[in-house]
Amino acid sequence: MSNATSTTVLPISASKLRIERADRLLLGIDELSVTGDCTAIIGPNGAGKSLLIKTLAGLQAADSGEVRWAGAAPQHTDRRRVGLLLQRPVLLRRSALANITYALRAAGVQASQAKEQAMAALTTAGLEALAASPAKVLSGGEQQRLALARALALSPEVLFLDEPTASVDPISTQSIELMLKSATEHGCTTVLVSHDLGQVRRLAQHVILMVKGGIVERSPVGRFFEQPQSAEGRAYLAGDLLL
């Protein structure tokens, strides 16, 4: 909407990323680049999926290695081009509408336009009837939809999502998936951490499988489900525990 003049943050890449805590490797990524479409990051709990997207989104500093946005170190001025939907939505103690207008105003949108755009975003999320409701009284699914509507209202070039539907009712899950599909179709690159393989099939074009902080397989979604290239991929799809 308002970002036409400035440069892009794509590709978002990482090289030699390492994060260790108490001598345990939490994240060890040699090379990774995210350029477009929807990429799903899957893997067992504790594999470093959330940590990876937080690091790529610039929220978490790595012990060593670097993250680059469009080939350069992440700039504060590009902050709003990269969105991240946290697993538990963080909403302000204000109305649903005010949560989105707040974000738009923070991004420099004029007050009059912000309200209009916020209302449009709420409508897309199917929450227009709840515009005046306090955000904190909405159901878990509604809160997540609101958080997604807020993230998308800022027209990010890249949106990271940390299990957006992990604790959400089916109707909200469907609504969230539709919003994500539409965002991807409109050119927003999405990177989705998910445990729901059905969702991965529905939304993603690429799959990254992480185990113990590292990437063990990166494949197009069709090939991953038909012919996983790694032993871990085959085990994961077979429902085995990746210890």
């Binding site: 929220l59 504060h76 902050r79 709003r80 991240l84 302000l92 974000a103 923070a106």
Partner: peptide, 16 residues
């Protein structure tokens, strides 16, 4: 503690 990540994502200055 609750909001710091979200406020960072919105690119807010310290005073904001």
């Amino acid at each position: 503690h609750e909001y710091k990540d979200q406020l960072s994502l919105l690119g807010l200055s310290n005073s904001a």
